[in-house]
Structure formats: C-alpha cells, structure tokens
Design a protein around this nucleic acid. Sequence first.
RNA 1: GGGCGAGUGGCGGAAUUGGCAUACGCGUUAGUUUUAGGAACUAAUGUCGCAAGACUUGGGGGUUCGAGUCCCCCCUCGCCCACCA
Length: 950
Amino acid sequence: MKEYDHKKLEKKWQTIWEKKRIYHAQNNSQKPKYYSLIEFPYPSGEGLHVGHPRPYIGMDIISRKRRLQGFNVLYPIGWDAFGLPTENYAIKTGQDPRMVTKENTDTFKRQIKSLGISFDWSREINTTDPEYYKWTQWIFLQFFKKGLAYKAKMMINWCSKDKIGLANEEVVNGCCERCGTSVEKKEKEQWMLAITKYADRLYKDLDDVNYLPQIKLGQRNWIGRSEGAEIDFKIICGSPTFTEVVKVFTTRVDTIFGATYLVLAPEHELLEKLKSQISNWDEASRYIVVNKKASDLERTVENKEKTGVELKSIKAINPASGEEIPVWIAGYVLATYGTGAIMAVPAHDKRDFEFAKKYNLPIRQVVAPVSRSSILGQMIHEGEPFRNREAVMCIVKHWKKNEYLCQEWKDFSGVRTFISGGIEPGEDIVTTGRREIKEESGYTHAKFIKQLNGFSYIEFYHQRKKVNMRARFRYLYYEFEDGEKEEISKVENNQHIIVWKKPKEIVDFLTISEKERIWKLFNSQEEIFTGIGYMVNSGKFDGMDSEKAKKEIIEFVKGKEKTTFKLRDWIFSRQRYWGEPIPIIHCQKCGMVSVPEKDLPVELPKVKNYQPTDSGESPLANIAKWVNTTCPKCGGKAKRETDTMPNWAGSSWYYLRYVDPTNDKVFADHKNLKYWTPVDWYNGGNEHTTLHLLYSRFWHKFLFDLKLVPTNEPYMKRTSHGMILGEGGVKMSKSLGNVINPDDIVKIYGADTLRLYEMFMGPFNQSVAWSTESIIGVRRFIEKVWRLQFKIKKKDNKEMKRILNKTIKKVSEDIEKMHFNTAISAMMILATEMEKAENISTNDYQKFLQILSPFAPHIVEELWNMLGEKKSINLSNWPEWDANLIIDEKIKIVVQVNGKVRATIFINANEGEEEIKIKALENQSIVKHLASGVPKKFIYIKNRLINIVI
RNA sequence: GGGCGAGUGGCGGAAUUGGCAUACGCGUUAGUUUUAGGAACUAAUGUCGCAAGACUUGGGGGUUCGAGUCCCCCCUCGCCCACCA
C-alpha cells in the first residue's frame, strides 16, 4: 500500500505542470475564453501570510472548473510594487528600492508557486518595470492631451510626517491613513485627473455590470449623485442699483416656501463683492478667518455645535414667497459642494433646524406627512380618486386627573384614536372640535387651549361611504372644565367606546401611525419631518404631493434642474521617489510639454538618498542631471516634472497588460484585447471595492472613448472575499506575533490541505479566524480520499450513483456562488459514504476526483495517474449530473400534529396526496397524538411534510 | 448622527429561502489498536429529565397550520460614510 506523501507528490506535479505549460492561456484559440482575475499583490517585506492566498485559491477553483468546462482560461498574476513601504524601507536601510522589490517578489513568487495555483506565470507583470510603466506614462499623456490631466493650485491634505500630499480618500478621520498623523492644510500645485467628467457614466453604467449589491452601493455612495435644482436668490441692500444673486443648490425645492434664511459658506466668493454693503463686516471677516484655519478634523468633530454670523444690512428674497429673509455665513455649509450656498429650511432639514433653534430663526412647516389607511383599518383602493376633507383631531384632558380622552372603534376592531372628525362647511375649527367631543363622548364643557403647530394627512378607505378619503388634520388641544355630560346618540354609542389614558400609555394605545410625532408635538418637543408628503403653507401648491410638485416649483421660481456629485477630481501627484515619474517637461517658453512618445519611459534615476526634501518636493528634485533637460518643442533649456504618480496608477490598467504583456509597440494589441476583455470575473478585497474599482473603471472608460479598448466597462463581475484573522479573531500582524506563514502549513500538511482548509473554514465573503487546530479535519478527508482507491471494483453501485450525482450538482452550483465551504462538506459526505460502501466503480471514483480537482489538484492528479490515465486530469472534463439519478425512490415525509413532528413515513415518488394522508393516519405514533382531538385540516407540502391540525 | 450587515452548541459554521434547527468540521467522552504517548478507526455528543417528554436560533411582541427565515419594537457587535443641502 502506497503511502500518501504530500511533499514528494506536490513537488512532482508542480514541476510537470510547469514543463507541460498546462496553465498557459492561448491567444489564438477556438475555445470560448474566460478571463478570471485577482488583485495583484503588493510584495511587502514580510512575505506571504495565510490571508494572501485565500482569494487566489477561490479564483483558482473557478478557473480550474472553467478549464474542465472547455474554456480557454486566462488567470494571470503580477506585482503592484510601487509604493511607500518599500520606499520607507529604502530610506531606512539605504538600499535601492529596485533591489528590495526584487527580493520581495522572489519570496512571494516562491511561496505562491508552492500552493499549486494555476496562474499563467508566463504573463507575469511588474508595475515598477520600465517596460510596464512606459505605458502607464503613455496613458497619462493621453489624459494630458485631452485636458483631463491638469495642474491646479489648491489646499491639499498634507502629512508632515510622511511629507506627502494625500488624496481625500487617504485621510481617515482627519488623519493620515498610513501613519495616523493629524493632517494639515497646505497650498500646493498638484496634478489632477478630471474623474468628475465621468461621474455620471461611472454612476449609470453600474446598471450594466454584475457586481455584488453592496459593491455597487459603495460606488454609488462615493460618487454621491443627487438630483435637484439650482435656484437664484436675489440679494438686496441699501443701494437700489445693487444687483447680486446667490445661486443655491437643493434637492428639496418642494420645501422652498419654508426657506426662512439663506446661508453662504465662509469661503463663498460672493462675499468679496458684498463686503462693502455689510455693516458688520468686521465680525464676519473674523469668523471667516477662524473657520478657514480649522482643519477638517475640527470641523467634523462629533456633536460640534454649528456656528455662524448674520450678515447685517443685506437680505435675500425668497423667490417663491417673495419674503425678505436674512443672510448668514456658517461653517456647516461646505464651499466645495453644490454652489457653496443653501436655502435653509429648518422645518424639514435637521442641520438647518439645529441652527435655527440656536439663533432663533423662524421655522415654518411646508410639507405635511401622510399616513395611509391607519385610521379605519381599511386599505385604500388603488387607482380610485380621493375625496378631500378638512378635519380636526382633538387631544382632550380630564377635568381632574392627568388623563386624556381616547376612543376605541367597535365597527373597525382594533382601531384606537383621539376624538376626530370632519369640518362642516362654514364651521370654524374650534367649533368643530367642541362639537365632535360632545357628540362622541357626551361631555359638554371642553375649553379650547391651543392649536398644535403642524398638519398631517391621513388617507383611508371609508367603508360606509365607499370612497377613498384624504383628510387633512389639524391638532387641537382642549381641557374639560368639569365632568358635565349629556346622553350620547345610539349611532355614536354603537361605533366606539370612550377610554381615558395616562400620558405614558397614550403612544402604546393609539393605532394611528403619526401618533409618536403628534404626542411629541403636543409635549412641545419639536420634531422635524424630512420625508415627502403633501404641501401646506405653500400658496397655490398647497395640497400637492411634494415629490410631484418639484418640477412645477422649479419653473415657478425660474430655477433649473441640476445634478451634483460628491465625487471630486483625483489628486494625482505624489512628492515621492518610488512611483512612475510624470512625463512632463516644463519649458519657460513653451510651458508644459509632453515627453515625446519615443522618449518613453522616463526612467527613475538612481539616487543616493531617497528622503523627500523639506520643501515637500520629491527626492527627484535634487538630481540636477536628471531634472535639467531640453524642451522637446523649442530645444531650449527646460526642467522635468519631479512629481510621481500615486499607487493607484499602475493598478488602474494592469488587467489590460496581461493580455499582451511583452508588446513594445502598444500597451496591448487590439486583437488580443478584443479576444480577452472584458474580465469575466474579478475578485478582490472589500477595501478596494470603492476606490481602486472606481479609478480603474474611469481609466477604462477614457481608453474606450479613445477607441483603444473594445468595451465600456473593464469587469463584468466583481465579488469580494473576507480577511483571514489571527486566532481569536484579531487582525494578523507582525507586532501581535500571530502571523501564520503558509510555508509552515505546506510543509506539515501539504498545499492541498491548506487549500481545502482555507476554503472550508467559513463563508468566502466573510472574515474568519485562523485555527491551526482545525486543519486536521480536512487532512483526514484527503487521506480518506487516498484510501478509497483501494476499494475500486468493476461492479456498479446504484445507491452510490445517486449520492454521487447529488454531490456533483451541489459542488457545481456551490462553486458558482463561491460557497466553497458547503461544496467541501458535500464531498466529505460523499467520501464517507464511499468508504462505507462495499465497492466503488472506477467511473464513480473518477468523477469524484474531477469535482475535487479544483480544490486539491495535486493529490487528485496523482490518483488519476495511478488509475492509468495518461493525460492530466486538467485536460479531462467537468462531470455532468444526471437529474434522473438524483430523485429518491423512497421519499421521507415528516408528519406533524399541530406543527410538531410526531412521526416520519416513507412514500414512493408516485403516491398521491390521499394515499399519503391515509398512511400518515395509520401511523401508530400519530394515532396516539390524535387521541385528544379530531383532525380539522391537513396541510401537505409535496415531498416534504404533512401537518395535521386538530 | 446616517447607511449597510450580522447575532444559531464548548468553537468554526449548515439550513434547496416559510416546512425535520444544529449538516460538515474541530473539540470533548467512551471503545478498538498500541510497551507508552501520539496517530488512526468506531460510536456518542444542544439544554433539562431515569423516562415518556418538554424547552432551544440576542430579548420582547405579531402574522401563519407552521418562523432561525417575514413584520414591529429593543439590546449587542462589525464595517463603511460622516455637516454632501
């Protein structure tokens, strides 16, 4: 009996696979193509830890399955090797980053190769290779030529420790993402990429790709598209000739009648022009200075109170109501979003509400909430018209006790309200309330105290009148003076009963959906309503649906529809050494000139010292020999750009280079691009699903517009994997000393065991804690599979065929959903069954090996070979399952009595419901449980259960 | 503060989407084997109970013949965003 020796066997097959080029993708194949992609790693100095291979193994399983399914598969890998950690290491040790990178990639490569992942290593790329970054530079120049790469002076986020400008997305809670130092503001010229030009397409084209929903959502939130309107507010002041206008962006034009003041961002450019008209300019300018100094961190501190200054002696005109409203400046309005100015609607916006409360500015409700069908328990009849009704709802206090009058309806059971009723023509609301109170409760001496602030609408179907009603309610407060009472009419008496409730009980008791808001209003805890509803206090728009009224209101105030984005242009320069030099030459005469294509790549020169300069320029600025050059246009003296590109650059297009990695004429041959792109399935980490994905979609769309790539989107499908955490669920890190090196696991248990374990430990898309203790389980499974070879006999085993086919189906489907853990569990069950069985047929065993092969390729190849197969199992096929063989002959049916399982019976596939019923009733255990009652109802769910209700 | 997601044995986790809760694996216990230890194999293993049986998916309510799964409220944890009008 041959022992399972993972060390010998894994090495042997890895060598053979490499020699036979089994995983090489063919550019000119008649087979359908499949392009599977993982995020190429950053080769850090720490080497691989067990978390790295998880996504590689996952996509390896997909890729191997596709090969067996007859696809020509491209599954490549490379190195995203530019970046800060290597540079910092170089600074510290005085080593050349090129050498550091070489050492690190060598280690990573050896480690990854030991896992038997079916990468096509002949297409390996490296972003730091001049032959690669030549094309990164070339693409940059295309952006430059189209005006999408430009230089702009701007306040940047500056990290004083790393001496580097940071993109907004690299600032986490006001601190540098890498080192945690608090971020400062610094003015600097920066290269920018105009990603905002593509914002709308980046947003809308998400409809056409198959990304996980949360990934799409992340992209959408980051782009932050919102549809609204731009509206002009006139500014008036003492001087009659003065005509200035403030543009305001809002998504809620429908609330414009409630705009009771206007706010400008402290940086708003109009302030310069208004300066002379503002009587308290001193105070205002002081506020502006203080606000400018405050870092982003200070401006966003939690619970920070909003501050602002009113600009005295000027006013704005609300274009809807014609009212004069005050103008303020306040830090809570951002200069960089929308127009840098807002119309404040404190009744319907939380921030405005807080501000208005603090500075005592008027609050006016203009949208009333609507609740449907809650009052009389009847669903409204869709599509039928509404009858409008004005109504009151009365909160009435007891004459002695601290209790309030409520009623419970008899004819619509379970409906509980305050006293309410419709206003008769000509009647004033106070009279209506008093009349309703008397009619419904009999009490006569109700004294009107006040009307609550606000309206709400209730829509319901009126059963007696057989019509949809829309009632607009006002809330009135009364107190009884005494308990004097009249007889109530029979009709009323039949409809409801009167109940007194204590304040604490009210909200629980009532069934109307606006109850909480009403009760808060009554207790004068003002509530703001930010939803949509029906308009009130809005002139001719009163009663309209606020969502539907938007268009008309924009017209009415002569505004225009406008879409804005949160997305900002991408700050593209870094003042560092270890990145792609930006291929631009600055000439005194000609300005900024592209490096001619023939001179690409602009290679990084060797330097003695990698330290950034104190002025914030990149270390490249110190190398006069490299910096000083001649202008390609006029031949005069010129200087090279010394900024380099960010990490994101090389990874924005790398998947295109795999298609044709050695081409020195173009970044990739168009024929190859046409065959291979788009990427069919891209899996990567959650941390890259917004930025990297967005940036690379942007580059791809740009290249598509230049007709350089054949598709509009780079990736058809995107999924993400969860992290592998250290034992105990904490992050694996060198400092915690809990890093597991895959080398050790491969040595002790073998690559197949490691692969299986990483896929078995938990759901692929969730983080899981590593547990070395648990690995033994999958190792036992593999050894079981090894032992099975000694049970092979010629004889067929019918029952085995059924289980096998079920497993093939399960594994096939689970792989597509990345449910690798349950696929493995199904194969474990199959292996146990096979071991229990008297014999296994060669054919069944081979099919098992085929479905196991993507998970544990080495052992399976060995067993396949031992069965006498001459060709690799990789060149065989993915087995189909036979649907007929999966059907059970005897079906187990659960018999329940009142929902509790009392017995199980077996039926044949062809038995009907009646026969099953009889069988169930004959069962001894069931007979016993039926003794206490008579069967009232039978519920039969096909092939599953029967429930007898007694 | 907002958005998204999660909460199931001692542990990692299953549950064809409303139909036998706890598959599979680890661990634990017993047995076989072994000089011993380990490994391997076999069996048992949610809780209470001698048992029949009862109870059990963070807590509370609801819908249903039937709820881990659907609805409402609350608690806890994780991730992302954070004054975006």
